[in-house]
């Protein structure tokens, strides 16, 4: 996903202590590379492999170098960089941008921002922010809970008992992340992070009760802002076709953002303690993540025994 300098500015205004020095009209420039660049080499005139699609950051080193030049030389070097159509330039440590920089901003239609942070911290925080802003994300129907560090998304048709299951899990000491609508975001090549929509965070809707505020009723530990997605539990009404893989030997997965997430389908029959079953599923997932697959291990043991019997018979 591509973002504009405006999104970066607005989302990072407080976090990165950003201000606009010049070129407010050009904030809609796209940032097409998810990273930042310190243009030291470019300012020295070396433009091979110059990362021109990234936001350029002028830190203490760059600005000291610029100061060491004559003003004509400095303008010339800066103009060379602006000509590359960089998305934006950021000056750190709250230093005011020199006048010639502002003139270049207008001329080449590139915004110049200022940050109150020191360069190292700014680079780290800004990179994380851009990654977060450009990460693929989606909203889906489902209730997200954290069970002993295992993030479980509970899915199923309306009225099947997702929220009730979550409520029972909270009572067993686990935490709610999102009720009914869960936001999934690809965090890295290996992880998907689940959270709730800001506006409904900490709330649940329980049929017959209405809307409740979870931490007021169950304490602060009953909620989490986000958690990793480790397991999807799909609730479905019990029927005759539920005898698919009773052994647990054929694991199912669902593709989410190109990652395979373990998927369990739980038939819901009257009187079944769903919360308890989901908790055990989370424990079992944890065990699998540690490299122990109980179904597989028992099967190996059985096969060894049966093969021995066949031979000695």
């Amino acid at each position: 996903m591509e973002i504009t300098v405006r999104t970066f500015y607005e989302e990072g205004k407080e976090l990165l202590q950003l201000g606009i020095e010049a070129g407010e009209a050009f904030l809609d420039n796209p940032i097409s590379e998810i990273s930042l660049n310190r243009p030291g080499l470019a300012l020295a005139g070396f433009y091979q492999y110059f990362a021109q699609k990234r936001i350029q950051v002028i830190g203490l080193a760059e600005s000291s170098y610029l100061k060491s030049m004559t003003s004509t030389e400095r303008s010339r070097q800066l103009a060379l960089m602006f000509k590359k159509k960089i998305p934006a330039l950021v000056v750190t440590r709250n230093r005011r941008a020199p006048k010639d920089l502002c003139a270049l901003s207008t001329r080449y239609r590139i915004p110049v921002l200022r940050s109150g942070m020191i360069t190292g911290h700014f680079m780290n925080e800004a990179t994380l922010l851009i990654e977060r802003l450009t990460a693929p994300s989606m909203r889906l129907h489902g209730t997200m809970v954290d069970i002993m560090g295992v993030g479980v998304l509970i899915e199923g048709p309306p009225g099947i008992g997702k929220s009730e299951a979550a409520l029972a899990l909270i009572e067993r000491g686990h935490s709610l992340v999102a009720d009914d609508i869960t936001v999934l975001r690809k965090d890295s090549d290996r992880a998907i992070v689940a959270s709730s929509v800001e506006v409904t965070r900490y709330h649940m809707e329980i049929r017959g009760l209405g809307i409740i505020h979870v931490p007021s009723l169950f304490g602060v530990a009953s909620m989490r802002r986000d958690t990793k997605l480790d397991l999807i539990v799909r609730l479905k009404r019990a029927s005759v076709d539920d005898e698919n893989d009773r052994s647990g030997l054929t694991p199912s997965f669902r593709e989410v953002f190109g990652l395979s997430v373990p998927l369990l389908t739980l038939p819901v029959a009257a009187g079944r303690d769903l919360a308890h079953v989901i908790e055990v599923a989370a424990r079992n997932q944890k065990l699998k993540d540690l490299g122990h697959d109980a179904a597989k291990e028992l099967d190996e043991k059985l096969i060894a025994m049966l093969t021995r019997k066949r031979q000695t018979r």
Partner: peptide
């Protein structure tokens, strides 16, 4: 079958009987 009634065949028997 070579490996006899291990977990997968057992699950298949249950699935069949349940129908």
């Amino acid at each position: 079958n070579r490996f006899g009634i291990h977990a997968r065949p057992a699950a298949l028997i249950v699935k069949t009987v349940s129908q």
